[in-house]
Design a protein around this nucleic acid. Sequence first.
DNA 1: TGTACATCAGTGAACGCGCGTTCACTGATGTAC
DNA 2: TGTACATCAGTGAACGCGCGTTCACTGATGTAC
Lengths: 215, 215
Amino acid sequence: MNSRPQPPVARSTYRHGDLRRALLDAGVELAREGGPDAVVLREATRRAGVAPNAAYRHFASQQALLKAVRAASLSAVAKAIEAELATVPADLAPADFARASVRAVGTGYLRFAQAETGLFRTAFALSDDLAVPDPNPERVGETGQSPYQLLGSALDKLVSAGIMPPERRPGAEFLAWSAVHGLAMLVIDGPLGPVIGARMQQVGQRLLDMVEKGL
Amino acid sequence: MNSRPQPPVARSTYRHGDLRRALLDAGVELAREGGPDAVVLREATRRAGVAPNAAYRHFASQQALLKAVRAASLSAVAKAIEAELATVPADLAPADFARASVRAVGTGYLRFAQAETGLFRTAFALSDDLAVPDPNPERVGETGQSPYQLLGSALDKLVSAGIMPPERRPGAEFLAWSAVHGLAMLVIDGPLGPVIGARMQQVGQRLLDMVEKGL
DNA sequence: TGTACATCAGTGAACGCGCGTTCACTGATGTAC
DNA sequence: TGTACATCAGTGAACGCGCGTTCACTGATGTAC
C-alpha cells in the first residue's frame, strides 16, 4: 500500500500508458455499479488516478465516454447471449435446434439483465439505434453480431426449420424482444423486483413458452 | 402580463393558497416533460412562484415530492386504461368480452406510454412495489384500481369465460405485462424508437395477438 | 364587534457539493540530425 | 552513439452551474377573549 493519499493508481511513468482504456474500464465499472447515470467523467478520471481534464485527451466529452461505455455494455450482452447459444446441443433436429436457439437468446438476455443490472440498463437506455449493423467491434460479441442480430438469426432458423411461416417472420424480433425486455425491466428497474425477485428465471421460462406459442 | 420579472405566478395574497397542489402539479409537469430525473425541487418552486425552501412546508424532501409525482403518474396510467376499457362493447359474448378487455388494458397502456412518455417513465421507474393494493387514492384510477389490478381483473375474466384454464392464471399478469411494457420501453426509451416509431400501435396489436395466443 | 396574539406559510440569504469544461502550463518521450 | 528539439499526454487551478437543504426571519391569517 502506498502511504501517500494522492495517486489512487500508482504510476511509474509520467505518461499513463493506456489512459483511454483505463477510463473506459473505469466507466464500465461505474455503469456496472450504478447504471448510465453513474458514468461520471470526474469519477472515471479519479479511478484512473489522473486529473479530471486529462480525460479530454481521449474523449471529446462526457457524452463520448458514455457512448463508448454503452457500446462495451452492448458487447457484453451479445457475449452473454452467445455463451447461452453455445450450450444448445448441435445434434438436435432442426426444429428443436431452432426453438432451443430462440430460447437461448432469451435466456441469455434475462441472465445478463439479472447478473449485470447496471450494464444492462446502460446498454439499452435511450439513444442511438442499434438495429443497424454496427461496424464498431466494441458493440458486438465474438461472432460479430449485435444482440438484435443474434435474435434475428435464431428466428430465421425457425423459418428455415419450417416451424414459423415465412410471412410471420418480418417484425418477429420486435415481439420476442419486447416480451423478454419487459420482464427484465420490470424486475430490475421496476415494480416487479420485490414481487418476482429470485423467481425471475422461472418466470422467464414461462414467458418464453408464451413467446414460442404465440409467435 | 405583469411587467415585473420576479413572480412567475402572480399571487394576490401573501399565503399561496394551495402550494402543495401547485408544487405537485409543477412536479407532474416536469415529469411529463423530462421523466423522473426532471422532477427537481427548485424548478417546481420556481414554477409555483415561490422561494425554493417553501417546498419544505409541504414535502419532507425532493424524494417525497418525486414519490407524490410518481403516484399521480400511476393514477394517470390507470385512467388511460380505464378509458380504453370503457370502449369495449358491453354486449359482447363473455369470451369475446374477456379477450377484448385484456386487449384494452394493453392498448391503453401502450397508448399512454406513447402519448405521455415522461409520465410513463416516471410511473414505472425503480422503487416501490405497486402490486400491493394501495389505499393512496393518487395512485389509482376512477375505479379505485391500479394498472396492475386492472390487468388482473381482465385476466380473471378470461378464466371465468372459460378461455383460460384456471391453473394458468397465477402469474399470467407478469407475462402479459412484460410483453407490453417491453415494447413501450424499447420504443420510447430504447433502441426501437427510430426503428418502429409511429408503427408502435400496429406492432402493439400484433404483440397482443401473440400474448392472446401464447397465454 | 373590536382587539391582542399565537400560529405557521412563505422569505431571503447562505451553505457545501459534485459536476463538466476551459486555460495556460510542464515535462517525459521519441525522432531527426 | 550522442545531442537538440518538437510533440503532446497529463497537470494544476479555476470557472460557472444548479442542485438539495438549513437558518433565522416576517408578516398575513384566524382565533380567543
